[in-house]
Structures are given as structure tokens and as C-alpha cells.
């Protein structure tokens, strides 16, 4: 464990908490892409199956359970509790355009042709594109509430910090996970446009981020 990875995990946790609390307190999921949240729940489900096969550390186990629980709670709030507030006509990204290539690639490019390893690889590739429906929804509505942009900021920051963690681990322990690194870089690149808007608009105190 190093400071970059710890900061990344904390940033990820903060993002998930921000969204969950926002939906719960505002009793609304307007502007939130339910599809992205379902994809994130799928990412955690397919990635954390090793909860049942191997114990790594208390931290590892606890964080995996927390991420799983909170992502399912978010999906529950969007599609069950506050479903009448769900903005379905703007959440129209075709997720099959993400799932088909990701499934295909995880069968082609993996470390071992075993169910657990292919599911892990699937979760890594899927996480890189899981935010697409949410970013698409924001470009479609042309705006995002500032709390939603904070959520996206911490979500994007988490994988950027993981890249720093991979650089650190490469130089200190010769650790290199090619699939995770390549996918993590692609994932972070997708946020760059948002990061620019976030810094130039939201941090300037705008109530909400209005896209140009």
C-alpha cells in the first residue's frame, strides 16, 4: 500500500458517498445516469468475486464490501426508491455499444483463460467506459449540478491517483499490471475534458456547470 493508492481509494469512496448522499438528501436522481451506476455495480460485482476465494487484508475486504454495498444502494435509489425522478429520456446511451466490445476484448486480452480472471479483466475494461452514459447525459442536457460535478471530479481523480500508484509500484517493487494500467490511462483520459470544465467553471463558483 502506498499513499497514492490510499488517496485513490479514499477519493473513490468520497465520490460514491457524495452521489449516494446527494440522491438520498435531495430525494431525486435528476441529472444522474442510472445506466452508469448499473455499470459500476457490475464492475464491482465482477471484480470482487475474489472476496469468496482469497483473503488479502482486512482493508481490502472491507473496502470491497463497502463499494459493493454503496453501488447497489445507489442503483436501488435510482431505479426503485426515486424511480419517478429518474431522467430516462436523457439517459439514452446505448450500453450495449460498451458491453459487446468489452466482453469481446476481455476474452481476447487477459492474463489467464479462467472465469475469475476473465471477469476481472471484464471489470477493468468496463470501468474505463462505465462513465460514458453519465458524460453523454451531461452533454445532452448541457448542464450538471455542481454536486454531480464534484462526484465526477473525485471519480476521475481516483484512477489518476492509481496511475501514480502504478508508477510508484513499478519503481519500488517492479510491479506492473499491464491490463489495469492501459485501461486506467484510457479511463482517466476520458475525464480530461471534464476536468478542464470543472476547473474553469465549477471551481470559479458557478452554481452549476453549463457546457459551452
Amino acid at each position: 500500500m502506498n499513499v497514492f493508492r490510499l488517496a485513490g481509494d479514499v477519493s473513490h469512496l468520497v465520490a460514491i458517498i457524495i452521489l449516494l448522499v446527494k440522491i438520498w438528501r435531495s430525494k431525486s436522481c435528476a441529472g444522474i445516469s442510472g445506466k452508469s451506476q448499473v455499470l459500476f455495480a457490475l464492475v464491482f460485482t465482477t471484480r470482487y468475486l475474489d472476496l469468496f476465494t482469497v483473503f488479502i487484508s482486512a482493508y481490502n475486504t472491507i473496502m470491497k464490501v463497502v463499494f459493493l454495498a454503496m453501488s447497489y444502494a445507489t442503483v436501488y435509489l435510482i431505479y426503485m426508491r426515486f424511480r419517478n425522478m429518474y431522467d430516462s429520456e436523457n439517459d439514452t446511451f446505448r450500453v450495449e455499444f460498451l458491453l459487446v466490445p468489452v466482453i469481446g476484448l476481455s476474452f481476447l486480452e487477459n492474463y489467464a483463460f479462467t472465469p475469475l480472471e476473465i471477469l476481472w479483466t471484464f471489470s477493468i475494461f468496463l470501468e474505463a467506459v462505465a462513465i460514458m452514459p453519465q458524460l453523454f447525459m451531461i452533454t445532452k442536457t448541457g448542464e450538471a449540478e455542481s454536486i454531480t460535478t464534484h462526484y465526477l471530479f473525485f471519480l476521475g481523480l481516483y484512477r489518476a491517483l492509481y496511475i501514480a500508484n502504478w508508477v510508484w509500484r513499478y519503481h519500488t517493487e517492479e510491479f506492473f499490471d499491464q491490463i489495469a494500467v492501459v485501461s486506467g490511462v484510457v479511463q482517466t483520459i476520458f475525464y480530461c475534458d471534464f476536468f478542464y470544465l470543472y476547473v474553469t467553471r465549477v471551481l470559479r463558483g458557478k452554481a452549476k456547470m453549463i457546457l459551452p
Binding site: 481509494d9 475474489d50 488479502i56 481490502n60 473496502m63 463499494f67 500508484n165 506492473f176 499490471d177
Partner: peptide, 10 residues
């Protein structure tokens, strides 16, 4: 060059 078995990263 990877953690075998369980993944130590989240």
C-alpha cells in the same frame, strides 16, 4: 509481475 490469486488493488 502481478499479484497471483486475489488482487491486492481495488
Amino acid at each position: 509481475d502481478r499479484v497471483t490469486g486475489g488482487k491486492d488493488e481495488l
